[in-house]
Every structure is written in structure tokens, then in C-alpha cells.
Simulated scan of single mutants.
Amino acid sequence: MTTQIAGCILTPESWVRGTLTFTNRITEIEGYPTTEPGEDEPLVLPGFIDLHVHGGGGADVMDADGAVDTVARLHARHGTTSCLATTMTAPREDIERALLDVGRAVRERPAGAARVLGVHLEGPFLNSTRLGAQPDFSRTATLVELTALQALAPIRVVTLAPERVGHLDFIRQLKNAGIVPQIGHSEACYEEAVAALTAGARGFTHLFNAMSPLHHRQPGIVGAALAHAEYAEIIPDLLHVHPGAIRAARRAIPKLCGVTDATAAAGMPDGSYRLGRQTVTRCLGGVRLADGTLAGSALTMDQAFRNFISMGLTPHEAACHLSMYPADYLGERDRGRLQPGVHADIVVFSPDLRLIQCFVEGEAIDVAQIE
């Protein structure tokens, strides 16, 4: 079925005031270029791509048994058109159960859900001193374990602590296998982080959080990211990272990728939820362990978009952080942009920044209503 949307359309070249026609892929964009949207017209943007999402709608990826379907459906209702299902540090058998479930969802997208592009393996190859909200099942990476997990579902990104013995070689092995190595949950010094980038690491997991901080005589991982990174994740819930730090990261890192790091609490009322083997509590706008440690978020991508705008970004800039840059990071050339031939992954916002339409590969999604 052919569908048309009218509005101000963000293409890779410019805004176009006109109509976008699509089936499961975009077939045509007609109209005339304009410098910026008008105040009274809808914004037609590329669908959002979340590189780091653990849960939503009361479900956690680690729950397995269809949990990833619930997660992908919840986030599609908030503008996420594709995502990486993200695991927790856990015993190997727990991760294997989760990946079996994710592998099924990757092979056949459930109706009404975001496209699951694969797995972000956030651990277990972390530093036990920088676990954040992760339980202490961290261990040194081996190619044997990775190969066994990769047979269950496509692993696209691996977060690891580069200072662990053998991990620089493991980064090279990941790169050679076409998997993106990402630095995070790490106590590495600046020099160790730079060595990891040289070995093939490409990004940083939730920049500023669960990593050695910036000090002017000990720049740490944060200093290495600000000095050398092309890509890094950031959680724009305005709780994990102060807006001033986000602005600093934007000036230093050309392709900052907004992620939700969402837990099962996303899209749900205040209360207790599961995050892997741990219980977390949603309250006061955040998600925390019993000791107050931030434990992922309740963020959705439509709110991330609004938060970026509230910081002074233009809709074009905000969309790049949530769509085009994540797509480029994964090498997904037919997502994250609106042009003929690419997947019809589309979000439409009203002039007051309410998400009013979402399409995943041409399928209309019943979007969540802001109360």
C-alpha cells in the first residue's frame, strides 16, 4: 500500500516542504527546499535508532521468552524504528537465553515493533570497579564465549573495559569480525583508552557514566573521548548527564549518539522493575538501585528529541544525534535518513513537538499519547 505524508521533510541535503511517498521503502520526495520549518507545520524526520536499550513496557531483554517483543513495541510507540537489544552482565546461561529470544526477533520483526538490528553486549567484559548498576558477573573476554553467543543472535556492539588483560587483542578480533568494540564500564587511564581506540575501538558507552572521569592531570576515559572520539553514546535524559556536559561533548565529538539506556520502567508508572537479576525502582523521573545508584533510565526517544530541543538544538541537529549518526555508526546506510530507496522508517512531530505518527518499514505504529 502506498502512503503519503505532507509536511517539512528532513532530507540529507535540506528541509523540503512537500510530500513523502512510501510503501515499505521511500519511493519519492516532492516539494521545494527551505532553510527551516515553519512554526505551524509538522516535522517529518528519520525514525530514531537506539543503540542501547535494555527494556520497556515492564519487560527486560534479559527476561527472554518474548520480552524483546514487548520492549520493541513500547519503544516503537515513542519513535524508535530500530534498536539494539542490550544485555546485562550476567552468568553465561542467562545471556544465552536472552540472545536466543533476540535472535528470533531479529529474523522476523514482530508486528507493531521496532526493527531489532542485533545485540549490544554490554558486558560481561567489564571492570568490576565500574559496574554502575550491573551485577558483578564480570569476566575477561574470550573468543570462544563470543563465538558461542554470536551463533545465537547477531552481536553488533560489545562494551568492554580495555584495561583488562588481553582486551586490546580482543578489540582487534572484534574489529576483524565486523563487530563494533566500545569502551565503557572501565577504569582505564587516558593512555589505555587511546590504545584501545588505536586497536579498533570506535565509541564510548554512555559517555561520562561508569568510566574514569576527566581531571586536568589525569584525563581518563572522558578525556580520551573528548580529545579523540568520532562517536560516543550519551543519555539525554538530563539526569545522567548535565546539559552543560552534553554541550561540551557535542563541541568535541562530531557524531554523538543519543541513547535511552532504557529499562523495563520505560513507559510504566513509578514502581519496582527488573533489570537483569536486580530490582530497580522508578521514582522522581529516574530509575535507581536501592542505594540510589542510577540504574538505566525510563527515557524514550521522543522525549530525548524534546530534551535536545530544550537545550537549544535545532530539530535538524537533534535528529542527527538520534537517527543519522547511530545509523552511520552501525553501517546501516538505508536507515537514519529520508531519501528514495531507504526503509520507510519515519517519525512525524507536531509543531509543539508531540509525536503524532511513526512508521517502521512502512508499517503504521499506534503511537503513545502524551498525557
Rank of each mutant, 00 (worst) to 15 (best):
A199T: 08
L45D: 14
T260A: 06
A153N: 11
T300K: 04
V158W: 01
F349Y: 15
E36T: 15
T300V: 15
T21Y: 10
A229V: 07
N24Y: 01
D169W: 05
A161D: 07
P110V: 13
P46V: 02
N209R: 13
A295S: 07
A133P: 11
T3N: 08
P124Y: 09
A199M: 06
G103Y: 11
R277K: 07
R333Q: 13
N307R: 05
Q173R: 09
E371C: 06
Q182L: 15
D237H: 07
I179D: 08
P236W: 03
F349R: 03
I370G: 02
V53N: 06
A85D: 07
D60C: 10
A72T: 05
A114N: 13
G200T: 00
G258P: 12
Y325P: 06
A368S: 13
I346R: 05
V222N: 01
A295I: 08
G166N: 00
R17D: 13
V106R: 07
A249V: 13
G331V: 11
P124T: 11
F305R: 12
E371L: 11
H167Y: 05
R107F: 00
A344K: 11
R73D: 09
G276E: 12
R104W: 06
L289I: 10
R306V: 09
E39L: 12
I183V: 15
V16G: 08
R306I: 01
T314Y: 08
V119C: 12
P124E: 10
G79I: 09
N127R: 02
E41Y: 00
Q173H: 12
G336N: 07
V347M: 05
L45E: 11
I183N: 02
M1C: 03
L160P: 11
H120M: 12
M62C: 05
A264L: 07
L330D: 08
Q357W: 05
A304V: 04
P213Q: 12
P269F: 08
P326A: 07
G312A: 14
G285R: 00
V348H: 01
E41K: 00
F359N: 03
L160Q: 10
G276Q: 13
L238Y: 00
R337L: 14
